[in-house]
């Protein structure tokens, strides 16, 4: 089966990308200034103590030995030990990672559902299209921190519909707390997705296969779903992937703005405190999320576009 083979090829590529990324992440911090041992001991120590700490932490081993230990640990769920918190990074992240996952997923849903619906409406209804294009152009130009401030002012301070801070508890509470951050994070990407969807749908509307369907008396609803949207889904999926991957980066800003205790704000703290193990772990998770999302989009593209299924030779 050609499809299975191509999917396996893509998965192999994905694993390889992750490996290369992990070397880069580990290497970048290995080369960074500042000795973790000094940091850990806290200032004045004798060289012999320093060497003892270095030996315990395997800091005097060659790069690839240390990298391998690190990778081996990660594969067994051990992300290393934070010298700042004196705690395992895995347990530090455990409570935070979900907050970020919820925020990014919520945002992704808002973007994909909202962006595709708006784009489709804009492409199919001329009048509405003008208004939506104007609205999304503003949205596109609004950075997430500006959106965050505006949303907090309007919906949290003035209207008091949604809380401005924290993560809440229970499903409903979390949903309420995460609504403003998710919208702030989503806004410009939603606008982008809407404009792209509109362009893709317009393009497909002008294609010959649509004319064929009309000439055969297919209902307009089916013409749109089977011969316009189905085909436009290919570029829309590609862009949604880029979008969701972009959210991972935008997440850092929004978590800070709304005081959400997630990976983004943790990364900022870790960086300020030179907490190498934590920085490495978070960076690796963010990169992995990025790569996995792109991998999913790649595979989705194979299912959506039969022309891509020919195995590369």
């Amino acid at each position: 089966m050609a499809l299975v083979r191509v999917v396996l090829e893509r998965l192999a590529e994905l694993v390889l990308t992750l490996l290369v990324a992990s070397v880069a992440i580990y290497g970048a911090l290995y080369l960074a200034p500042g000795n973790p041992a000094t940091l850990l001991a806290g200032g004045h120590i004798t060289p012999s103590v320093l060497r003892e700490i270095e030996r315990q932490l395997h800091l005097n081993e060659p790069f690839f030995v240390r990298y391998w230990d690190w990778l081996d640990g990660i594969l067994h769920g051990n992300l290393g030990k934070s010298f700042v918190y004196r705690e395992s990074v895995t347990s530090l992240l455990a409570s935070r990672v979900l907050n970020s996952v919820y925020l990014v997923s919520y945002s992704a849903v808002v973007i994909i559902v909202g962006g595709v619906a708006l784009g489709l409406a804009a492409a199919l209804r001329r009048r509405l299209g003008v208004a939506i294009t104007a609205g999304t152009s503003v949205g596109l130009a609004t950075p997430s921190f500006v959106a965050a401030i505006m949303l907090i002012t309007l919906f949290a301070v003035n209207l008091k519909w949604f809380p401005a801070y924290g993560t809440g508890s229970g499903f409903a509470g979390q949903l309420r707390h995460l609504t403003l951050p998710a919208v702030a994070l989503a806004l410009s990407w939603l606008a982008y997705t809407a404009q792209l969807t509109k362009a893709a749908v317009r393009e497909e509307l002008g294609k010959d296969q649509v004319e064929t369907a009309q000439s055969r008396g297919i209902r307009p609803r089916h013409v749109v779903t089977r011969h316009v949207l189905r085909n436009a889904l290919i570029p829309i999926t590609t862009v949604s992937g880029i979008t969701v991957a972009g959210l991972v980066a935008g997440d850092v800003v929004v978590e800070q703005a709304f005081g959400i205790n997630g990976l983004g704000s943790f990364l900022v703290q870790a960086t300020l405190q030179k907490d190498f193990a934590s920085m490495q772990a978070v960076a690796l998770i963010l990169v992995a999320a990025f790569v996995v999302v792109n991998g999913i989009v790649d595979v989705a593209g194979l299912f959506l576009d039969p022309r891509l299924r020919e195995p590369a030779v």
């Binding site: 294609k207 010959d208 296969q209 064929t212 369907a213 089977r226 011969h227 085909n231 576009d305 039969p306």
Partner: peptide, 12 residues
Amino acid sequence: FQDARSHINPVR
């Protein structure tokens, strides 16, 4: 139609 390739939906 003249051009069957463009008149038949490529993804179905």
